[in-house]
Simulated assay, not measured.
Amino acid sequence: MNRPARLAVAALTVSAALLLTACGSGGGDDSSSDKIKGAGAGSEKTSASPSAPASQDAAGRPEITLSKDFQANFEGWTNSDPKLQAILDDGREELRSEYAAVIEADLNSDAVAFYNSDATLTTAHKWIKQFVDDDESLIGSVTAFDPQVHINDTGSGVLFYCVDERKASTKNRKTAKITTTADKPENVLQYRNRLDKNPQGVWKTTSSTVVPGACG
């Protein structure tokens, strides 16, 4: 998870920490380095940029609302396979939950905890805390695109996607100072996530690596 200039730096910090806990809960050591092999990945090009998730369901998925000053757009996040679509949906909400936590300065976001395993929750909190400590919020927009998803041999979901942060900025809550994101290739990030389905049917993120500039 990340944002402008210092956001990309935050992304690298999170990535390094997550590599140390990549095995998360379940799966072997190999599961943290899953490769997308062209299966099922964002095969349907329909653009989808929901401003809010589906209503709460039996699993108790939280409602996540973003500020009117910040938009997270999702392009091509549809798949004809219901199982893969479920991974896309929960993977999308995990990202949105962290954006919302930064905007709300909520270090103990229930939504972030809902979509993350113990292995990734600590690093997510550290990432959010950087913004809270600096009294910064998010404005502008990001676009998440080119999602690639499949289920590996161990039953874990593998989700790669790109996030273009070049139209996002941070805004200091007290001074109103805005820091824009540099228009550089490294501010288009690739997320490489593994998700595991819990007994309630929620695909929780169990490992995550962020690679700046990997989306070309």
Rank of each mutant, 00 (worst) to 15 (best):
G140D: 09
S31Y: 08
P147W: 00
D164V: 01
A124E: 08
D134S: 15
P185T: 05
N187C: 00
D134Q: 12
N152M: 00
G91N: 04
T13D: 11
N172R: 05
S141G: 05
C215H: 00
D183W: 07
P147T: 00
D146Y: 02
P82D: 09
I87G: 03
F74K: 06
G213E: 08
N2Y: 04
G213A: 09
W203V: 06
V211L: 13
A111Y: 07
K197N: 12
I139W: 02
S208E: 12
V210C: 01
T181W: 03
V188Q: 01
D34K: 05
L12P: 04
N108E: 15
A22H: 06
F160G: 02
W127E: 15
K171S: 06
D106I: 03
H150E: 14
S47I: 02
R61S: 14
D81A: 05
F145A: 06
S156C: 04
A22Q: 13
S32L: 06
R3M: 13
S208G: 07
G216S: 14
A11Y: 03
E98D: 13
P50D: 10
P199Q: 13
Q71D: 12
T21M: 12
S32D: 10
Q148G: 08
S55L: 15
G140S: 08
A58R: 07
V211G: 07
P185D: 11
G26A: 10
R6N: 14
Q56M: 14
V112A: 12
E94Y: 10
G26K: 03
G213P: 07
E94M: 11
A168E: 04
T78M: 11
T170I: 10
G216Q: 15
D69L: 15
A113L: 12
Q148K: 14
P199C: 11
D183Y: 09
A16P: 00
A10R: 03
Y161M: 07
R3F: 14
L121I: 03
G42W: 02
